[in-house]
């Protein structure tokens, strides 16, 4: 099963490239303190607003800080928020979807109507309000984004659980006297892992986008801690005259989100049991 999965995944060249790209970027950002040539808040007023050069690969900003360094540190925050928020959202969505699908009846109805309502609320205005009233720390960003991105996972998991709970091995577990929690955790959720994983992957891209949007609006992680989003915001005024300040964080967001989505798509195809092994 595992080999088949890898063979199918490897057939998607874009996904393999994306995975390699994401791993490299992720590793570079994680190792930022080691790799970065300058401190991320190292102000150098003698060399402000310099275009890319050999000493400053991506130029410097209006305080003379090295853009490459800030890209690495900013990616750390952006990717970390993306990953953690996806984990929170996936966990929440899985729990809610599994409870709804497994118990059915009133519980199902109530949970799914809550999901519908959560779906119907426009995310960005709510995010703006929430982040305006909370301290814009990493933890609260993760929680806010996670709390607003569980609905798709909940629906997918619910539909999976509806079919898996009719399997004989679930009946066998019930017949041996297992509790509902045990049946869910050991038998149902592991067999719904494919779609959950796909949702989580796509959630990472989504969370990075939301974080960037909020930071761009000045509501995200606060300076001097860089994120790709607040670097974009800082460069707004000089977009035309100093394009490198906009270009690099913009491209980073674009490619990372694109890569994550490619990975998610390929995962979906590779994990789909109904697709033939071609």
């Amino acid at each position: 099963m595992r080999e088949l999965f890898w063979r199918r995944f490897a057939r998607r060249r874009a996904a393999v490239l994306s995975l390699a790209f994401f791993v490299v970027i992720g590793a570079a950002c994680a190792l930022a303190p080691v790799l970065a040539p300058f401190p991320f808040d190292g102000i150098d007023l003698d060399s402000v607003k310099q275009p890319p050069s050999l000493s400053h690969w991506m130029g410097t900003d209006d305080l003379g800080r090295d853009v490459f360094t800030r890209m690495l540190f900013g990616g750390r925050v952006s990717i970390l928020i993306g990953l953690l928020a996806a984990v929170v959202g996936t966990f929440l969505g899985t729990a809610i979807g599994a409870a709804a699908g497994y118990h059915g009846g009133v519980i199902d109805n109530v949970l799914m109507r809550i999901t519908d309502v959560a779906y119907a609320i426009p995310t960005l205005p709510l995010l703006i309000i929430l982040s305006a009233y909370s301290r814009a720390a990493l933890v609260s960003m993760v929680l806010i984004i996670g709390l607003l991105s569980w609905m798709t996972t909940a629906r997918v998991v619910r539909s999976q659980v509806l079919s898996i709970k009719e399997m004989d091995y679930v009946e066998a577990a019930r017949g041996m006297g297992a509790t509902d929690l045990r049946i869910l955790v050991r038998h149902i959720v592991p067999n719904a892992l494919g779609p959950i994983l796909v949702g989580a992957t796509l959630g990472v891209g989504n969370a990075i986008m939301i974080e960037s949007s909020l930071s761009f609006l000045g509501l995200g992680v606060q300076p001097p801690t860089p994120t790709w989003g607040n670097m974009l915001m800082d460069s707004q005024a000089t977009m035309v005259t100093k394009p490198w300040l906009t270009l690099f964080p913009g491209l980073a967001i674009l490619f990372v989100v694109l890569a994550v989505n490619f990975i998610g798509d390929a995962l979906r195809d590779a994990l789909d049991p109904s697709a033939s092994s071609r």
């Binding site: 099963m1 399997m167 004989d168 091995y169 009946e171 577990a173 017949g175 041996m176 006297g177 592991p190």
Partner: peptide
Amino acid sequence: LRSARRHMQMVFQSPFASLNPRL
């Protein structure tokens, strides 16, 4: 009832559906 189930068990029709493929 759960603890009574210890004394009464079931063998299923389809040996392909009755075992959790992930365990």
